[in-house]
Design a protein around this nucleic acid. Sequence first.
DNA 1: TAGGCTATTATTAGTGG
DNA 2: TCCACTAATAATAGCCT
Lengths: 157, 157
Amino acid sequence: MSRKKLKLAFISNDMARKTTYKRRKKGIMKKVDELATLCGISACAVISNPFDSETEVWPNPEGVNKVMERFKNASVLNKSRNVNHESFMMQRIVKAQNELKMQREENYEKEITLSMFQFMQGQNLPSTVEEIKEIHKMIEKNIKEIENKLAALHCES
Amino acid sequence: MSRKKLKLAFISNDMARKTTYKRRKKGIMKKVDELATLCGISACAVISNPFDSETEVWPNPEGVNKVMERFKNASVLNKSRNVNHESFMMQRIVKAQNELKMQREENYEKEITLSMFQFMQGQNLPSTVEEIKEIHKMIEKNIKEIENKLAALHCES
DNA sequence: TAGGCTATTATTAGTGG
DNA sequence: TCCACTAATAATAGCCT
């Protein structure tokens, strides 16, 4: 039985950490669910575990799928404006794209006020701060590489 | 004093609902914070209230700003591929955009495993189910309008 | 690995200032 | 509107099977 207060610090024991994670995740989801019911918010949660092909979904898969689709569809930087100034048709397309972008931002703002999303890390937590730092470095490097490529294209045109 | 269990249902009284919302929101944030600390997850939360210019940020503004920037930058559907088949340069740009898109998706997948985000509704909750339905309708309508515009452009080119 | 138990701690509903 | 109080309820850490 719990005879003392848990010290609020990183749990170094792997099994204990995993257990606590699962228990508390469940607790938070319940709380979110209750808040949604009590206050009339349409809420959903995603427990995305990329190391495992399985993706937990809660409470309703439909809403979550919509959200995930939105993110998948909305991943292109709109840099074309600066590149294609020579094409009239291109300008019209870019304008329409911008309108779409603004509209989607507006819609996103509205939906965000109606929903609460939680993206929680799955079961296989990175064990060390070093691992996390390593991943962050990799991300930075990848972004820079792509941005350099785009810059090169800009010079060519 | 609380002498009975709260019935888990929508609280129709506006003030009571608002109070409960604030209290429970605070509670959930604390739980999320604790989970982050205990399990070594880098977590952040945004309480975005579009009806009020203020946006609460918790626990660290820096991380949250990064996340919000990502969403702001990533809001254009990549439909150009189908429109600009006549331009060689355009094809190259589109290819680069696709690479960027895939890269950002990959990065997003990675970051999602490192972070927990909460987007919570602010203070001005829609009071009725009808209001919520109304907003959803508006969103659908807006999306369709923009998509029609893009379709028209496709026919022209 | 998962689920049950329970002492203990934490959250919070209702209330009043 | 917001804080403080506190009885009642809920969550959960450490064990156990």
